[in-house]
Structure formats: structure tokens, C-alpha cells
């Protein structure tokens, strides 16, 4: 599955687009991401699934659009 990575999270993932093995839910996705990139655990970001920011766990369909969004501070 494809994950779009925004902002300074790209410093951790090394890319703006990640390809990882399909997972079934948000919780499973963050576990997989933390295993691949342990530094993400110390970083604030939200996971958007199909253009929705959902609090808590949520299912992820086969062709879901996934994005990792960090907060920005600059102005």
C-alpha cells in the first residue's frame, strides 16, 4: 500500500512516498511504521485515511489513500 509522507516526517522516512505491506487498520499501520522507523514514535503526526483524520483505530481498505501529516510551526 502507498503512504504519502508530508513535512519534516520525510527526514525520518527518507522519502515522500512509502510502499509497505497491506495492513487492516490504523493501529496495525502505526505499529508497522514504528517498527520501520523507530524515530516516528517520538514525533507528533496524524494518520489520514481516505482523507479523514480519525481519532482512535479505524479500518483500512485495500486501496485506501493514506497520508502522514505533521504539525507545521513556521510563518
Amino acid at each position: 500500500m502507498v503512504i504519502l509522507v508530508f513535512g519534516q516526517l520525510q527526514d525520518i522516512t527518507g522519502t515522500d512516498t512509502l510502499h509497505i505491506k497491506q495492513v487492516e487498520g490504523k493501529k496495525q499501520l502505526s505499529d508497522a511504521l514504528f517498527e520501520l522507523f523507530p524515530r516516528l514514535q517520538e514525533t507528533k503526526f496524524v494518520i489520514a485515511i481516505d482523507r479523514q483524520i480519525i481519532d482512535g483505530d479505524a479500518p483500512i481498505g485495500p486501496n485506501a489513500c493514506i497520508a502522514l501529516l505533521p504539525p507545521f510551526s513556521g510563518g
Binding site: 508530508f6 482523507r51 483524520i53
Partner: peptide, 16 residues
């Protein structure tokens, strides 16, 4: 969120 380097743009809904 708008990425000027690649012209990627993503609008996401925020749920409570």
C-alpha cells in the same frame, strides 16, 4: 496541506 516542490495537495476532513 500543500507541497510546492511536487504540487501535491491533500485536503483532509477533521473528525471530532
Amino acid at each position: 496541506t500543500y507541497d510546492t516542490l511536487r504540487h501535491r495537495q491533500l485536503v483532509v476532513n477533521i473528525l471530532p
